[in-house]
Structure formats: C-alpha cells, structure tokens
Design a protein around this nucleic acid. Structure first.
Lengths: 152, 152
DNA sequence: TCCAAAGCGCACCCAAAAGGTGCTAATTGC
DNA sequence: GCAATTAGCACCTTTTGGGTGCGCTTTGGA
C-alpha cells in the first residue's frame, strides 16, 4: 500500500516525545496522555524499539523509556526497519523468490532494476530524515488534553 | 507495508509488454504466456488501467489492449495512482481524519510535515520514472516458456 | 512488608486489505 | 453460429495490521 503503518506512526510519536524529554524517562501512560493512542499497542511498539536498540527501558514503578541515542542519530529508516522490516518494493526482489537465483518471472523480468533504483532512493530519504528533524519541525504545541482509548 | 502491490507489479509488466509491441494489440492471454501471471487478475488490472485512461481496449475475437500514450508519457506514479490510489504515508494525512480541520492527534502532532516531505519526494520519484525507462533498462531477454497459473 | 505502577511475554481475536476465482454477459472476426 | 476476447459483478481465501486478555516480573515508596 505504499504507506507507513500505524505502528510506525505510534513509534515516531513516542520517539518524538522521548526526544522532548531529553533523557528523562517517559512511561507509556505519559505518552498516551499526550497523544490519544491505544496504550497497549504503543507498549508493544516501544518494546520492539527496545529490542532494536533504539530505546532503553527501565522497569519498576517509576520506570519507562529513554532514547538510546541522540535524536540526530536516529533515522526514519531505523524506525521503519525496526517496526516493519525492510521489505522489498516488489515480490520479485524478495529473498524467497530470489533463492532460485532470480525472480519468479526471470529471466524475462524487465522492471526490476528501475524499481530497485526507486526503492533505494526511498530508503536514502528515510535514512537521511532524522528524529531531530521531526522534533524541530512541527508547530511544537504545548502539552494538551488527551483523548481516550481503551482504559488508557 | 511500504511496498507496491502485486496488482501494480502485474500492471507494470503488462504495460512493458504493450510498450514492446509498439502499438499492436496484445491480449491478456499473450501477456500471461510471456510472464507466469494469473490471467484473471491481470485482466482485472488491465481493465482498471483502461478506466484510468492508460490503455485502450478493443473487444472481440482479435481484441486486446494497446498503450493509450507513448511510453515516455506514462509514469510509475500514473500506474500506482490508477491501481492503488494515492494513499497518504500516515493516517494523519487522510481526508477522513482531516475533515475536522486537522489530524486526530492535532494540534500537537509534531511528525506531520517532515513525513509529508518524504511522501512528496517519493511521489516525485514515481512521477519521474517513466514506462520508457522500465522498457529500456532490463536485460531484455527474448520470450521464453511461461509458467502456469489457473487455466492460464 | 505490601502494594501499586511500570515493563515483559505470549497468545489470541477482529477487521481490513490483497489476491484470486466463478459466472455471465457483450463484442467482434472468421 | 462459434470461438476468442474484454466487461462487470460478486464472492471467497489468505495475509497483514491493529488491538486485547491475562498473567508475570521488577521496582520504588507508603
């Protein structure tokens, strides 16, 4: 579908929040009080980001998450890779199909290389867009009243 | 998932085939004899491309499809738009959510503009990649034995 | 010492999207 | 008339994405 998933969206919002907190721990509850997001799903996402090494977690009653790196060293590509994997643009690039030495419609597949070029440039863009640029760009409004989802 | 659908992939292959035929009509059967693709689905896709004005169709026993424009005037963007629509990268750009005048997590959504920039640049790439560049790039192998799906 | 608040892990469910098929026209050349 | 083709539904199946149930572990503070 050529679009980012909600998980990625949630992850980016969470990371932006962490960046704003500048090293202080932030809990899932806190993030979901700022943005009207489903608590549990955000927790899942944060857990995945932790596994990917993008955030550190501390457990316990005053626990939460912190950025594992500086905002300028986290890219959109990192986040997408952590939460969606780095999928091929078309199936003819997938490892499963490629294992035979070429794509399914090979050796007569003419669209592969330009498609790959587009894909590579897309990933270049993702890799060059840092969390810092997300943080510093928005209208950056102060904390507001949250919505409510689930128990939240 | 940040990848093109199979429908788009099929559409591109079909269009490349039509471009190779240089004006001569090509039937779905012919396309599926060249590439091992499901006949019916390719037919669906071609129909959609016809509705989008990218191909012309002629019915009847010797009918089929032809390109409606020159290969250099058909872009990846055209094809994706015809077969997938032009979806937003994140839900906070979708018209449904925006109808209230801003995205769901507004006015405190900080990730919107950089994401939109990435999206716009992606579409620029898609709009600048023409069918011609797909045709002229591949190793351009001669027609080979097809696989088989369904009746095909 | 206990309890509440937080993260951890697994499994599961629901809904939407994507891919594909059945069937029946309508058209057209032979 | 017949065969080959596109046209237009409607429907099914699989996959993916989003979300939840439930119980466990960790930790700070009353």
């Amino acid at each position: 579908m050529l679009q980012l998933t909600k998980r990625t969206e949630y992850g980016l919002l969470a990371l932006v929040h962490l960046a704003d907190r500048e090293g202080a721990v932030a809990s899932v509850r806190e993030i979901c009080e700022r943005y009207p997001l489903p608590k549990r799903t955000v927790a899942e996402v944060l857990k995945d980001l932790q596994h990917a090494g993008l955030v550190d977690s501390t457990r316990g009653s005053s626990g939460g998450y912190t950025l594992a790196r500086a905002p300028e060293q986290v890219t959109l590509g990192d986040v997408v890779r952590a939460l969606e994997g780095a999928p091929p643009l078309t199936t003819c690039e997938s490892p499963i199909v490629l294992k035979g030495g070429g794509c399914e419609v090979q050796p007569m597949c003419p669209i592969k290389s330009p498609i790959q070029r587009v894909r590579e440039r897309l990933w270049q863009m993702l890799e060059h867009t840092t969390l810092r640029s997300l943080v510093s760009s928005g209208p950056h409004v102060s904390l507001g009243a949250p919505g409510a989802v689930e128990s939240n």
